[in-house]
Simulated scan of single mutants.
Amino acid sequence: MRRLVVWNVMSLDGCFEGTTPWSLDHHATVWGDELEAFSLQQGDEIGTLLFGCRTYKGMADYWQNETGSIADMMNSLEKAVISRTLETANWSNTRLLKGEAAEHVRALKKETGKRDIFVFGSSNLVATLLREGLVDEYRICLAPIVLGAGSPLFKPDGIQKNFELMRADTLETGGVVLRYKCL
């Protein structure tokens, strides 16, 4: 069975973005050769890149206009977007999945002969999948910055979720890449 792996950059105070959507300046505090190499390495593990509607739109708008090895990877990967409202998904290699996220992810995980499913960003989608017990691994790059305000990576929903640390790697930029198994 395919695994579902979530990847995000998070500030020390738990935010994945600032106070406005796509406020991601804190990513620059951890970006460098090491994180670029890690990103490309992760790309080799990805069978399907999964997004919620809002993250899909932002990623598509950004990566379709970029060049370089990361852009090549992002544009060539198989992608899926889960949405109740989106009518089309025109980014290369994207399929649109309408309806309930958990049902679609259960089906994606059963697909044979493919590498793992990765979710970048998409905090609302991830909150749903985490509640449903569908996330297998969480990868977080902890950025050495306190934003003071912003969107929390983990949504307060009153449900405790336990993780087991699998690996921690420090970056020359001061960031730490943490890999957790979801229990």
Rank of each mutant, 00 (worst) to 15 (best):
M1S: 12
R2Y: 07
R3V: 13
L4Q: 01
V9E: 05
M10Q: 08
M10W: 01
G14M: 08
C15M: 12
C15G: 10
E17L: 04
G18R: 02
G18I: 08
G18V: 11
G18Y: 08
T19R: 14
W22K: 04
W22P: 01
W22Q: 05
S23D: 15
H27I: 15
T29V: 13
W31S: 10
D33K: 12
L35A: 09
E36I: 13
A37Q: 12
A37G: 13
A37T: 15
S39D: 09
L40E: 12
D44K: 11
E45S: 12
E45R: 13
L49E: 04
L50R: 00
L50Q: 00
F51E: 00
C53Y: 11
C53T: 15
R54P: 05
R54K: 14
R54H: 15
K57H: 13
A60C: 05
D61G: 11
D61C: 05
D61M: 07
D61W: 07
W63P: 01
Q64T: 14
G68D: 02
S69K: 13
S69M: 10
A71F: 03
M73D: 09
M73F: 09
S76A: 14
E78W: 03
K79P: 01
K79Y: 03
A80I: 00
V81G: 02
I82E: 00
R84N: 10
R84K: 12
R84T: 15
L86W: 03
A89Y: 02
A89D: 02
N90D: 15
N90R: 10
W91Q: 00
N93H: 14
N93T: 08
T94W: 05
L96I: 04
L96F: 04
L97D: 01
L97C: 02
L97N: 02
K98T: 14
K98F: 04
E100G: 00
E100S: 05
E100P: 02
A101S: 10
A102P: 02
E103I: 09
H104S: 05
H104F: 00
V105D: 03
R106K: 14
R106C: 11
K109C: 03
K110Q: 14
K114E: 09
K114R: 14
K114G: 03
D116V: 07
I117D: 02
F118D: 00
V119P: 00
F120C: 03
G121A: 03
N124P: 05
V126D: 01
A127M: 01
L130Y: 05
R131G: 09
E132L: 08
E132A: 12
E132N: 04
V135S: 00
D136Q: 04
Y138T: 12
R139A: 08
C141P: 06
A143Q: 01
P144E: 08
I145V: 15
I145Q: 04
I145A: 06
V146R: 05
V146Q: 04
V146P: 03
V146C: 07
L147V: 07
G148A: 08
G148F: 07
L153V: 09
F154D: 10
F154G: 05
K155S: 12
P156H: 10
D157G: 09
K161Q: 15
F163Y: 12
E164M: 09
L165T: 13
M166W: 07
M166D: 13
R167E: 15
A168F: 06
A168M: 11
T170E: 14
T170R: 12
L171H: 01
E172K: 10
G174H: 04
V177N: 11
L178Q: 02
R179C: 11
R179A: 13
